[in-house]
């Protein structure tokens, strides 16, 4: 056995032990050590050299990055998640022909989709989605994220929140909590436009609060413009339903002038 590989495996074992202990300081320290050690392996992306230990090295590197991604979720660090995920991705795409598929692949891809959804990066979400095969889309972890996005776009927020109970993996909980917050903001924004007024108890139900107190705190913090009166929330609607009475003269003038200028150019 190559001494470098032995060293990496040993450090990795210690790292895994630290993860189990939830000793995050030790984890991060060991992880950076591991990453430095990995740079000496030439069979890893982007070099992909065909060395005798290539498969072994690739497998262990993939394993390390998978753990790194999961660790970043545990530490609730989204930036670290993104970094580690991008380091991991070549092992799923470019090294597909060299390695047996990892059982962690779909859960992690699903996690990434969820992260993009939480960060409201829908365009990237769809770009990632295009990379997945039909069989991948049928995987429960991926499907979960895809259905969430759909419900989210449609506005079926209750479905989004009830998906919290059916998470395919424990690691998903962190992002689901973040998503719940996004959903609440969305609901608040929609309600403001859709209702004239809501009774406090209804509002509490719609905005998914367990007590009136939480609701009051939320309204004070996020929407101070809402008026609370006699057990009702009255949404301050801008009364702009009256069609535009005054003529937007400045805009009209600039438009007409530009027509004149263009016409002059033609004639």
């Amino acid at each position: 056995m190559d001494p470098k590989i032995t060293e990496v495996s040993q450090t990795f074992e210690r790292f895994k032990a630290a993860v189990v202990r939830n000793d995050f300081d030790a984890c991060t320290r060991l992880l950076s050590q591991l990453k430095v050690l990995l740079t000496s392996f030439t069979s890893l992306p982007p070099l992909f050299q065909e060395t005798s230990n290539a498969i072994h090295e690739l497998t262990i590197a993939r394993d390390i990055y998978e753990h790194a991604v999961v660790l970043s979720v545990k530490m609730e660090d989204q930036d670290a998640f993104e970094r580690d995920f991008f380091q991991l991705k070549p092992y799923y795409t470019d090294a597909r022909g060299r390695l047996p598929a990892s059982p962690q692949e779909y859960p992690i891809l699903g996690l990434n989709l969820l992260r993009l959804l939480v960060q409201n990066r829908i365009a990237e979400f769809h770009t990632e989605l295009e990379l997945l095969s039909q069989s991948a889309l049928d995987n429960p972890c991926i499907k979960h994220a895809v259905e969430l996005e759909q419900s989210f776009m449609e506005g079926a927020y209750h479905r989004v929140l009830s998906a919290r109970q059916t998470v395919p993996d424990a690691t998903y909980a962190y992002f689901m909590d973040l998503l719940a917050k996004t959903v609440r903001d969305e609901i608040a924004g929609c309600s403001e436009k859709a209702y004239d007024r809501l009774s406090t108890s209804d509002a509490r139900q719609i905005l998914l609060f367990s007590s009136d107190k939480e609701l009051l705190q939320y309204v004070e913090k996020e929407h101070p413009e809402w008026e609370m009166k006699n057990g009702f929330i009255i949404f301050q609607k801008v009364k702009d339903s009256v069609p535009c009475k005054e003529i937007p003269s400045l805009q009209l003038i600039t438009q007409t002038l530009s027509y004149a200028r263009e016409l002059e150019r033609i004639v």
């Binding site: 506005g155 209750h158 924004g189 929609c190 859709a194």
Partner: peptide, 26 residues
């Protein structure tokens, strides 16, 4: 839960300006 879904879907459509309507929750 079709009614709750319908309600949130309608409210989102209103916010996005797809339809011009108001909801009466009561």
């Amino acid at each position: 839960n079709p009614v709750a879904d319908a309600e949130s879907i309608v409210s989102k459509a209103i916010r996005d300006g797809a339809i011009d309507a108001t909801l009466d929750h009561a």
